[in-house]
Design a protein around this nucleic acid. Structure first.
Length: 425
RNA sequence: GGAGAGGUGGGUGAGUGGCUGAAACCAACGGUUUGCUAAACCGUCGUACUGGGUAAACCGGUACCGAGGGUUCGAAUCCCUCCCUCUCCGCCA
Protein backbone atom coordinates (compact mmCIF):
# COMPACT_ATOMS: atom_id res chain seq x y z
CA UNK A 1 0.00 0.00 0.00
CA UNK A 2 1.18 3.49 -0.77
CA UNK A 3 1.48 6.20 1.83
CA UNK A 4 -1.52 8.50 1.52
CA UNK A 5 0.72 11.39 2.50
CA UNK A 6 3.06 10.59 -0.35
CA UNK A 7 0.14 10.51 -2.78
CA UNK A 8 -1.12 13.79 -1.39
CA UNK A 9 2.26 15.47 -1.85
CA UNK A 10 3.25 13.84 -5.15
CA UNK A 11 0.10 13.16 -7.14
CA UNK A 12 1.83 13.49 -10.50
CA UNK A 13 4.56 11.03 -9.61
CA UNK A 14 1.96 8.53 -8.50
CA UNK A 15 -0.17 9.02 -11.60
CA UNK A 16 2.82 8.45 -13.85
CA UNK A 17 3.88 5.36 -11.91
CA UNK A 18 0.43 3.83 -12.11
CA UNK A 19 0.23 4.63 -15.79
CA UNK A 20 3.57 2.95 -16.41
CA UNK A 21 2.26 -0.08 -14.63
CA UNK A 22 -0.87 -0.18 -16.76
CA UNK A 23 -2.90 0.48 -13.63
CA UNK A 24 -6.11 2.40 -13.22
CA UNK A 25 -5.48 5.94 -12.12
CA UNK A 26 -7.83 6.92 -9.32
CA UNK A 27 -5.58 9.51 -7.75
CA UNK A 28 -7.92 12.46 -8.17
CA UNK A 29 -10.82 10.53 -6.76
CA UNK A 30 -8.68 9.53 -3.83
CA UNK A 31 -7.52 13.05 -3.13
CA UNK A 32 -11.08 14.35 -3.01
CA UNK A 33 -11.96 11.72 -0.46
CA UNK A 34 -8.82 12.48 1.49
CA UNK A 35 -9.79 16.14 1.66
CA UNK A 36 -13.29 15.30 2.82
CA UNK A 37 -11.94 12.89 5.34
CA UNK A 38 -9.67 15.44 6.93
CA UNK A 39 -12.40 18.03 7.07
CA UNK A 40 -14.68 15.64 8.89
CA UNK A 41 -11.91 14.63 11.26
CA UNK A 42 -11.39 18.25 12.23
CA UNK A 43 -15.10 18.68 12.85
CA UNK A 44 -15.64 15.56 14.89
CA UNK A 45 -12.50 16.06 16.92
CA UNK A 46 -13.51 19.56 17.89
CA UNK A 47 -16.83 18.28 19.12
CA UNK A 48 -15.19 15.46 20.99
CA UNK A 49 -12.75 17.83 22.63
CA UNK A 50 -15.66 19.88 23.85
CA UNK A 51 -17.49 16.82 25.01
CA UNK A 52 -14.47 15.68 26.97
CA UNK A 53 -13.99 18.96 28.74
CA UNK A 54 -17.66 19.31 29.60
CA UNK A 55 -17.69 15.77 30.93
CA UNK A 56 -15.07 16.87 33.41
CA UNK A 57 -17.40 19.66 34.48
CA UNK A 58 -20.22 17.19 35.01
CA UNK A 59 -18.01 15.06 37.18
CA UNK A 60 -17.00 18.09 39.21
CA UNK A 61 -20.57 19.31 39.67
CA UNK A 62 -21.83 15.90 40.70
CA UNK A 63 -19.03 15.58 43.19
CA UNK A 64 -20.11 18.83 44.75
CA UNK A 65 -23.66 17.60 44.75
CA UNK A 66 -24.84 20.24 42.35
CA UNK A 67 -27.28 19.94 39.49
CA UNK A 68 -25.76 19.23 36.08
CA UNK A 69 -28.87 18.45 34.11
CA UNK A 70 -28.75 21.49 31.85
CA UNK A 71 -25.28 20.83 30.49
CA UNK A 72 -26.04 17.15 30.31
CA UNK A 73 -28.90 17.77 27.95
CA UNK A 74 -26.72 20.12 25.95
CA UNK A 75 -24.13 17.40 25.67
CA UNK A 76 -26.72 15.01 24.41
CA UNK A 77 -27.12 17.16 21.34
CA UNK A 78 -23.38 17.35 20.76
CA UNK A 79 -23.10 13.65 21.22
CA UNK A 80 -25.71 13.00 18.54
CA UNK A 81 -24.05 15.42 16.19
CA UNK A 82 -20.72 13.67 16.69
CA UNK A 83 -22.27 10.34 15.83
CA UNK A 84 -23.64 11.70 12.60
CA UNK A 85 -20.28 13.06 11.50
CA UNK A 86 -18.57 9.85 12.51
CA UNK A 87 -20.94 7.84 10.34
CA UNK A 88 -20.18 10.04 7.41
CA UNK A 89 -16.49 9.77 8.15
CA UNK A 90 -16.63 5.99 8.31
CA UNK A 91 -18.32 5.81 4.94
CA UNK A 92 -15.65 7.99 3.39
CA UNK A 93 -12.82 6.09 4.96
CA UNK A 94 -14.24 2.84 3.70
CA UNK A 95 -14.29 4.19 0.16
CA UNK A 96 -10.86 5.65 0.56
CA UNK A 97 -9.37 2.43 1.81
CA UNK A 98 -11.04 0.44 -0.90
CA UNK A 99 -9.22 2.58 -3.45
CA UNK A 100 -5.97 2.66 -1.53
CA UNK A 101 -5.80 -1.10 -1.14
CA UNK A 102 -6.23 -1.46 -4.89
CA UNK A 103 -3.40 0.96 -5.64
CA UNK A 104 -0.40 -0.91 -7.05
CA UNK A 105 3.11 -0.32 -5.85
CA UNK A 106 5.04 2.11 -8.03
CA UNK A 107 7.91 0.94 -10.25
CA UNK A 108 11.41 1.87 -9.17
CA UNK A 109 13.31 4.38 -11.26
CA UNK A 110 15.62 1.65 -12.51
CA UNK A 111 12.73 -0.26 -14.07
CA UNK A 112 12.38 0.22 -17.83
CA UNK A 113 9.06 1.67 -18.86
CA UNK A 114 7.13 -0.69 -21.10
CA UNK A 115 3.71 -2.00 -21.88
CA UNK A 116 4.05 -5.76 -21.78
CA UNK A 117 6.40 -8.70 -21.45
CA UNK A 118 7.64 -7.91 -24.97
CA UNK A 119 9.57 -5.05 -23.48
CA UNK A 120 11.29 -6.93 -20.71
CA UNK A 121 15.06 -6.70 -20.83
CA UNK A 122 17.37 -9.71 -20.90
CA UNK A 123 19.99 -8.95 -18.31
CA UNK A 124 22.15 -12.02 -18.72
CA UNK A 125 22.07 -15.55 -19.94
CA UNK A 126 23.93 -18.63 -18.83
CA UNK A 127 24.40 -22.17 -20.04
CA UNK A 128 26.79 -25.02 -19.33
CA UNK A 129 29.70 -25.20 -21.73
CA UNK A 130 28.58 -28.20 -23.76
CA UNK A 131 25.16 -26.72 -24.33
CA UNK A 132 23.72 -25.12 -27.44
CA UNK A 133 20.32 -23.53 -27.95
CA UNK A 134 20.29 -24.95 -31.46
CA UNK A 135 19.35 -28.55 -31.00
CA UNK A 136 19.56 -30.60 -34.11
CA UNK A 137 17.86 -33.86 -33.20
CA UNK A 138 14.26 -34.17 -32.12
CA UNK A 139 13.79 -34.27 -28.38
CA UNK A 140 10.89 -35.57 -26.37
CA UNK A 141 8.89 -33.12 -24.32
CA UNK A 142 8.36 -33.58 -20.61
CA UNK A 143 4.92 -35.12 -21.05
CA UNK A 144 6.21 -37.76 -23.42
CA UNK A 145 9.17 -38.43 -21.19
CA UNK A 146 6.98 -38.64 -18.11
CA UNK A 147 4.71 -41.13 -19.74
CA UNK A 148 7.45 -43.23 -21.32
CA UNK A 149 9.39 -43.52 -18.09
CA UNK A 150 6.26 -43.79 -15.95
CA UNK A 151 7.28 -40.98 -13.65
CA UNK A 152 4.49 -38.47 -14.33
CA UNK A 153 0.79 -39.23 -14.76
CA UNK A 154 -1.26 -36.21 -15.75
CA UNK A 155 -4.31 -38.30 -16.66
CA UNK A 156 -4.62 -39.83 -13.24
CA UNK A 157 -3.95 -36.46 -11.65
CA UNK A 158 -6.94 -35.19 -13.56
CA UNK A 159 -9.04 -38.12 -12.43
CA UNK A 160 -8.19 -37.55 -8.81
CA UNK A 161 -8.55 -33.77 -8.70
CA UNK A 162 -8.99 -32.20 -12.12
CA UNK A 163 -6.68 -30.86 -14.76
CA UNK A 164 -3.62 -29.07 -13.52
CA UNK A 165 -2.95 -31.37 -10.60
CA UNK A 166 0.19 -33.29 -11.43
CA UNK A 167 0.86 -36.74 -10.10
CA UNK A 168 4.45 -37.93 -9.68
CA UNK A 169 5.23 -41.60 -9.50
CA UNK A 170 8.27 -43.68 -8.61
CA UNK A 171 11.54 -42.08 -9.57
CA UNK A 172 9.64 -38.99 -10.69
CA UNK A 173 8.37 -38.46 -7.17
CA UNK A 174 11.82 -39.11 -5.77
CA UNK A 175 13.37 -36.67 -8.20
CA UNK A 176 10.90 -33.98 -7.22
CA UNK A 177 11.64 -34.54 -3.53
CA UNK A 178 15.37 -34.54 -4.24
CA UNK A 179 15.09 -31.25 -6.05
CA UNK A 180 13.25 -29.65 -3.14
CA UNK A 181 15.75 -30.92 -0.60
CA UNK A 182 18.71 -29.91 -2.71
CA UNK A 183 17.41 -26.38 -3.11
CA UNK A 184 16.57 -26.03 0.57
CA UNK A 185 19.96 -27.34 1.67
CA UNK A 186 21.81 -25.07 -0.71
CA UNK A 187 20.03 -21.96 0.50
CA UNK A 188 20.40 -22.94 4.11
CA UNK A 189 24.03 -24.04 4.03
CA UNK A 190 25.50 -21.95 1.24
CA UNK A 191 23.41 -18.80 1.33
CA UNK A 192 22.63 -18.44 5.00
CA UNK A 193 18.84 -18.61 5.02
CA UNK A 194 16.80 -19.90 7.95
CA UNK A 195 14.46 -22.71 7.05
CA UNK A 196 10.73 -22.31 7.60
CA UNK A 197 8.01 -24.86 6.99
CA UNK A 198 4.87 -22.74 7.03
CA UNK A 199 1.15 -23.46 7.14
CA UNK A 200 -0.36 -23.98 3.70
CA UNK A 201 -3.69 -22.40 4.64
CA UNK A 202 -3.82 -18.78 5.68
CA UNK A 203 -6.43 -16.28 6.81
CA UNK A 204 -7.64 -13.28 4.92
CA UNK A 205 -5.56 -10.75 6.83
CA UNK A 206 -2.39 -12.49 5.69
CA UNK A 207 -3.38 -12.27 2.04
CA UNK A 208 -4.20 -8.61 2.41
CA UNK A 209 -0.85 -8.12 4.09
CA UNK A 210 1.14 -9.41 1.14
CA UNK A 211 -1.17 -7.87 -1.46
CA UNK A 212 -2.94 -10.83 -3.06
CA UNK A 213 -6.23 -9.55 -1.65
CA UNK A 214 -8.46 -7.75 -2.19
CA UNK A 215 -7.41 -7.49 -5.80
CA UNK A 216 -6.79 -11.10 -6.79
CA UNK A 217 -9.86 -12.63 -5.20
CA UNK A 218 -10.59 -14.63 -8.35
CA UNK A 219 -7.17 -16.21 -8.44
CA UNK A 220 -7.40 -17.63 -4.95
CA UNK A 221 -8.79 -20.91 -3.79
CA UNK A 222 -11.07 -20.18 -0.88
CA UNK A 223 -12.26 -22.48 1.86
CA UNK A 224 -15.28 -20.44 2.83
CA UNK A 225 -16.42 -22.65 5.62
CA UNK A 226 -13.35 -21.86 7.66
CA UNK A 227 -12.37 -18.52 6.20
CA UNK A 228 -9.06 -19.94 5.02
CA UNK A 229 -7.24 -19.79 1.73
CA UNK A 230 -4.73 -22.30 0.31
CA UNK A 231 -1.55 -20.32 -0.28
CA UNK A 232 -0.54 -19.36 -3.82
CA UNK A 233 3.06 -19.11 -2.60
CA UNK A 234 4.99 -19.51 0.64
CA UNK A 235 5.63 -15.79 0.42
CA UNK A 236 2.28 -15.29 2.09
CA UNK A 237 2.76 -17.22 5.33
CA UNK A 238 6.44 -16.40 5.61
CA UNK A 239 6.10 -12.66 5.08
CA UNK A 240 3.15 -12.63 7.46
CA UNK A 241 5.22 -14.27 10.18
CA UNK A 242 6.13 -10.75 11.23
CA UNK A 243 2.82 -9.05 10.54
CA UNK A 244 2.02 -6.51 13.29
CA UNK A 245 5.48 -6.85 14.72
CA UNK A 246 8.24 -4.43 15.55
CA UNK A 247 11.60 -5.93 14.67
CA UNK A 248 14.95 -5.02 16.14
CA UNK A 249 17.03 -3.06 13.69
CA UNK A 250 20.05 -5.25 14.31
CA UNK A 251 18.04 -8.38 13.55
CA UNK A 252 17.85 -7.24 9.90
CA UNK A 253 18.23 -8.56 7.34
CA UNK A 254 16.11 -11.59 8.16
CA UNK A 255 16.40 -14.30 5.51
CA UNK A 256 13.97 -17.20 5.33
CA UNK A 257 13.71 -20.07 2.94
CA UNK A 258 10.67 -22.28 2.93
CA UNK A 259 9.18 -25.07 0.90
CA UNK A 260 5.47 -25.18 0.25
CA UNK A 261 2.97 -26.53 -2.16
CA UNK A 262 1.37 -23.64 -4.03
CA UNK A 263 -2.24 -23.47 -5.12
CA UNK A 264 -3.52 -21.27 -7.90
CA UNK A 265 -6.89 -21.21 -9.56
CA UNK A 266 -5.44 -19.72 -12.75
CA UNK A 267 -8.94 -18.54 -13.55
CA UNK A 268 -9.53 -17.89 -17.21
CA UNK A 269 -6.21 -19.28 -18.38
CA UNK A 270 -7.41 -22.59 -19.75
CA UNK A 271 -6.05 -23.44 -23.12
CA UNK A 272 -3.05 -21.19 -22.71
CA UNK A 273 0.18 -23.06 -22.05
CA UNK A 274 -1.93 -25.46 -20.10
CA UNK A 275 -0.39 -28.77 -21.07
CA UNK A 276 1.58 -30.78 -18.60
CA UNK A 277 3.52 -28.75 -16.10
CA UNK A 278 3.41 -25.46 -17.93
CA UNK A 279 0.44 -24.12 -16.01
CA UNK A 280 -0.88 -26.06 -13.06
CA UNK A 281 -3.13 -25.53 -10.06
CA UNK A 282 -0.73 -27.10 -7.63
CA UNK A 283 3.02 -27.05 -7.69
CA UNK A 284 5.97 -27.12 -5.35
CA UNK A 285 8.16 -24.18 -4.68
CA UNK A 286 11.09 -23.24 -2.50
CA UNK A 287 10.70 -19.60 -1.64
CA UNK A 288 13.22 -17.05 -0.42
CA UNK A 289 11.92 -14.19 1.70
CA UNK A 290 13.89 -11.25 3.06
CA UNK A 291 13.08 -8.51 5.55
CA UNK A 292 15.60 -5.72 5.14
CA UNK A 293 16.38 -2.12 5.97
CA UNK A 294 15.07 0.30 3.33
CA UNK A 295 18.48 1.45 2.19
CA UNK A 296 19.54 -2.11 1.37
CA UNK A 297 16.57 -3.47 -0.48
CA UNK A 298 17.76 -3.03 -4.04
CA UNK A 299 21.12 -4.62 -3.26
CA UNK A 300 19.28 -7.44 -1.56
CA UNK A 301 17.21 -7.95 -4.69
CA UNK A 302 20.41 -8.64 -6.60
CA UNK A 303 21.42 -11.07 -3.85
CA UNK A 304 18.19 -12.97 -4.02
CA UNK A 305 18.49 -13.31 -7.79
CA UNK A 306 22.03 -14.62 -7.52
CA UNK A 307 20.97 -17.08 -4.78
CA UNK A 308 18.28 -18.41 -7.07
CA UNK A 309 20.46 -18.64 -10.14
CA UNK A 310 23.13 -20.44 -8.17
CA UNK A 311 20.75 -23.40 -8.08
CA UNK A 312 20.54 -23.50 -11.86
CA UNK A 313 24.30 -23.29 -12.24
CA UNK A 314 24.70 -26.22 -9.90
CA UNK A 315 22.04 -28.14 -11.79
CA UNK A 316 23.65 -27.07 -15.06
CA UNK A 317 20.40 -25.95 -16.59
CA UNK A 318 20.50 -23.08 -19.08
CA UNK A 319 18.70 -19.96 -17.98
CA UNK A 320 18.36 -16.29 -18.63
CA UNK A 321 17.44 -13.38 -16.42
CA UNK A 322 14.92 -10.75 -17.36
CA UNK A 323 14.39 -7.37 -15.84
CA UNK A 324 10.65 -6.86 -16.06
CA UNK A 325 9.42 -3.65 -17.61
CA UNK A 326 6.95 -1.49 -15.70
CA UNK A 327 3.91 -2.88 -17.50
CA UNK A 328 4.75 -6.47 -16.65
CA UNK A 329 5.41 -5.86 -12.95
CA UNK A 330 3.06 -7.50 -10.50
CA UNK A 331 0.73 -5.50 -8.28
CA UNK A 332 2.93 -5.31 -5.18
CA UNK A 333 6.38 -5.20 -6.78
CA UNK A 334 8.51 -2.14 -7.40
CA UNK A 335 11.17 -4.11 -9.27
CA UNK A 336 11.33 -7.68 -10.43
CA UNK A 337 13.63 -10.10 -12.18
CA UNK A 338 12.31 -13.27 -13.75
CA UNK A 339 14.51 -16.27 -14.20
CA UNK A 340 13.61 -18.43 -17.17
CA UNK A 341 14.93 -21.89 -17.92
CA UNK A 342 15.32 -23.36 -21.35
CA UNK A 343 12.92 -25.94 -22.70
CA UNK A 344 14.37 -27.62 -25.81
CA UNK A 345 11.12 -29.39 -26.64
CA UNK A 346 8.97 -26.28 -26.38
CA UNK A 347 11.84 -24.40 -27.92
CA UNK A 348 11.33 -21.51 -25.55
CA UNK A 349 12.13 -20.07 -22.17
CA UNK A 350 9.95 -20.93 -19.18
CA UNK A 351 9.49 -18.76 -16.12
CA UNK A 352 10.85 -20.68 -13.16
CA UNK A 353 11.43 -17.86 -10.73
CA UNK A 354 10.34 -14.37 -10.02
CA UNK A 355 12.38 -12.23 -7.63
CA UNK A 356 10.80 -9.02 -6.42
CA UNK A 357 11.46 -6.08 -4.24
CA UNK A 358 8.27 -4.79 -2.66
CA UNK A 359 9.83 -1.82 -0.94
CA UNK A 360 7.67 -0.86 2.01
CA UNK A 361 4.46 -1.79 0.18
CA UNK A 362 3.90 -5.01 2.10
CA UNK A 363 5.47 -3.67 5.28
CA UNK A 364 2.90 -0.90 5.32
CA UNK A 365 -0.01 -3.22 4.58
CA UNK A 366 1.03 -5.81 7.11
CA UNK A 367 2.49 -3.34 9.58
CA UNK A 368 5.97 -4.81 9.78
CA UNK A 369 8.26 -2.22 11.28
CA UNK A 370 11.61 -1.81 12.94
CA UNK A 371 12.89 0.71 15.43
CA UNK A 372 15.48 2.92 13.80
CA UNK A 373 18.17 3.16 16.48
CA UNK A 374 19.40 6.51 15.24
CA UNK A 375 16.14 8.39 14.91
CA UNK A 376 14.27 6.27 17.50
CA UNK A 377 11.41 6.21 15.05
CA UNK A 378 9.50 3.26 13.72
CA UNK A 379 10.04 2.57 10.04
CA UNK A 380 8.52 0.03 7.72
CA UNK A 381 10.83 -2.76 6.69
CA UNK A 382 11.31 -3.54 3.05
CA UNK A 383 10.35 -7.04 1.99
CA UNK A 384 11.57 -9.13 -0.89
CA UNK A 385 11.00 -12.58 -2.15
CA UNK A 386 12.07 -14.84 -4.91
CA UNK A 387 11.39 -18.36 -6.00
CA UNK A 388 14.43 -20.41 -5.44
CA UNK A 389 12.86 -22.08 -7.44
CA UNK A 390 9.49 -23.44 -8.52
CA UNK A 391 9.86 -27.09 -9.38
CA UNK A 392 7.22 -27.50 -12.07
CA UNK A 393 8.74 -25.47 -14.90
CA UNK A 394 12.18 -26.35 -13.63
CA UNK A 395 11.27 -30.02 -13.88
CA UNK A 396 10.29 -29.49 -17.52
CA UNK A 397 13.71 -28.05 -18.30
CA UNK A 398 15.48 -30.62 -16.22
CA UNK A 399 13.85 -33.63 -17.85
CA UNK A 400 14.18 -32.27 -21.36
CA UNK A 401 17.77 -31.10 -21.03
CA UNK A 402 18.96 -34.25 -19.30
CA UNK A 403 17.35 -36.75 -21.66
CA UNK A 404 19.57 -39.12 -23.60
CA UNK A 405 19.00 -40.00 -27.24
CA UNK A 406 17.25 -43.16 -26.00
CA UNK A 407 14.79 -41.10 -23.96
CA UNK A 408 16.28 -41.85 -20.57
CA UNK A 409 16.99 -39.21 -17.97
CA UNK A 410 20.38 -38.71 -16.40
CA UNK A 411 20.02 -37.33 -12.90
CA UNK A 412 22.05 -34.13 -12.47
CA UNK A 413 25.22 -34.82 -10.53
CA UNK A 414 24.27 -32.64 -7.55
CA UNK A 415 20.95 -34.42 -7.13
CA UNK A 416 22.32 -37.94 -7.16
CA UNK A 417 23.08 -38.09 -3.48
CA UNK A 418 19.48 -37.04 -2.86
CA UNK A 419 17.88 -39.48 -5.29
CA UNK A 420 20.12 -42.44 -4.67
CA UNK A 421 20.03 -43.24 -8.41
CA UNK A 422 21.84 -41.79 -11.42
CA UNK A 423 19.50 -42.57 -14.23
CA UNK A 424 15.79 -42.88 -14.87
CA UNK A 425 15.00 -45.51 -17.45
C1' G B 1 -17.81 -31.77 19.05
C1' G B 2 -18.78 -30.88 24.81
C1' A B 3 -17.35 -28.02 29.42
C1' G B 4 -14.67 -24.11 31.53
C1' A B 5 -11.03 -19.88 31.83
C1' G B 6 -9.10 -15.72 29.61
C1' G B 7 -7.62 -11.66 25.97
C1' U B 8 -4.92 -4.48 29.18
C1' G B 9 1.39 -0.76 26.81
C1' G B 10 7.96 -4.40 24.47
C1' G B 11 6.96 -8.25 28.80
C1' U B 12 4.59 -9.58 33.67
C1' G B 13 0.33 -7.57 35.71
C1' A B 14 -3.30 -3.95 38.66
C1' G B 15 -7.62 -1.76 37.49
C1' U B 16 -16.08 -3.06 37.93
C1' G B 17 -18.82 4.06 35.21
C1' G B 18 -15.88 10.44 35.65
C1' C B 19 -9.70 11.61 39.87
C1' U B 20 -6.99 5.86 34.27
C1' G B 21 -3.54 6.64 28.29
C1' A B 22 -3.95 3.53 32.03
C1' A B 23 -0.65 1.74 38.98
C1' A B 24 3.48 -1.35 40.03
C1' C B 25 7.43 -4.28 38.47
C1' C B 26 10.71 -5.99 34.50
C1' A B 27 13.02 -4.81 29.96
C1' A B 28 14.91 -0.61 27.04
C1' C B 29 17.17 4.26 26.66
C1' G B 30 19.90 8.75 28.86
C1' G B 31 22.66 10.22 33.16
C1' U B 32 25.29 9.97 38.20
C1' U B 33 28.52 6.70 40.80
C1' U B 34 32.59 2.96 39.43
C1' G B 35 39.79 0.97 37.99
C1' C B 36 36.54 -2.82 34.84
C1' U B 37 32.08 -5.76 35.33
C1' A B 38 28.02 -5.84 38.47
C1' A B 39 24.93 -3.18 41.72
C1' A B 40 22.62 1.31 43.40
C1' C B 41 20.33 5.99 42.47
C1' C B 42 17.93 9.88 39.21
C1' G B 43 15.41 10.76 34.71
C1' U B 44 13.03 9.23 30.03
C1' C B 45 10.09 5.63 28.26
C1' G B 46 3.18 3.53 23.58
C1' U B 47 1.16 3.98 18.70
C1' A B 48 -1.77 6.03 14.91
C1' C B 49 -4.36 9.92 12.92
C1' U B 50 -5.06 15.15 12.82
C1' G B 51 -3.94 20.72 13.32
C1' G B 52 0.18 24.16 13.94
C1' G B 53 5.43 24.54 13.03
C1' U B 54 10.65 24.66 8.28
C1' A B 55 9.14 17.56 5.48
C1' A B 56 13.47 18.48 11.85
C1' A B 57 12.97 19.48 16.94
C1' C B 58 8.65 20.71 19.33
C1' C B 59 3.48 22.10 20.72
C1' G B 60 -2.07 21.24 20.65
C1' G B 61 -6.30 17.85 19.68
C1' U B 62 -8.55 13.02 18.91
C1' A B 63 -8.55 7.84 19.03
C1' C B 64 -6.82 3.19 20.72
C1' C B 65 -7.10 -1.74 27.00
C1' G B 66 -8.79 -8.71 21.07
C1' A B 67 -12.61 -6.81 16.85
C1' G B 68 -17.31 -4.64 15.84
C1' G B 69 -21.87 -2.72 17.68
C1' G B 70 -24.99 -0.85 21.94
C1' U B 71 -26.33 1.70 26.80
C1' U B 72 -24.66 6.60 29.01
C1' C B 73 -23.69 13.57 29.31
C1' G B 74 -19.31 10.21 30.17
C1' A B 75 -16.97 3.13 29.15
C1' A B 76 -10.72 -0.60 29.87
C1' U B 77 -14.91 -0.93 33.39
C1' C B 78 -22.09 -2.40 31.91
C1' C B 79 -24.85 -5.13 27.58
C1' C B 80 -24.80 -7.80 22.61
C1' U B 81 -22.26 -10.24 18.47
C1' C B 82 -17.84 -12.11 16.57
C1' C B 83 -12.57 -13.57 16.63
C1' C B 84 -8.51 -15.65 19.09
C1' U B 85 -5.73 -18.20 23.03
C1' C B 86 -5.44 -21.65 27.06
C1' U B 87 -7.23 -25.99 30.21
C1' C B 88 -10.11 -30.52 30.69
C1' C B 89 -13.17 -34.34 28.15
C1' G B 90 -14.41 -36.81 23.46
C1' C B 91 -12.76 -38.00 18.44
C1' C B 92 -8.56 -38.46 15.31
C1' A B 93 -3.41 -38.27 11.60
Amino acid sequence: MLDIKFIRDNPEVVKQGIKNKNGKDRVDELLVLDKQRRNLITQTEELKAKKNSVSQEVAKLKKQGEDASSIISEMKIISDETKEIDNELNAIEEKLNEILYHFPNLPDESVPVGKSSEENVVVRQWAPEEFSLENEEKVLDHIELGKKLNILDFERGTKISGSGFPLYIGKGATLERALINFMLDTHIKEHGYTEVLPPFLVNRASLIGTGQLPKMEEDMYNIEKDGLYPIPTAEVPITNMHRNEILEEDSLPINYVGYSACFRREAGSYGKESKGFLRVHQFNKVELVKFVKPENSYDELENIVSDAEAILKLLKIPYRILLLCSGDLSFAASKCYDIETWSPAENKWLEASSCSNFGEFQGRRASIRFRNYKTKKLNFVHTLNGSGLATSRLMVSLLENYQTPEGKIIVPKVLQKYTGFEIID
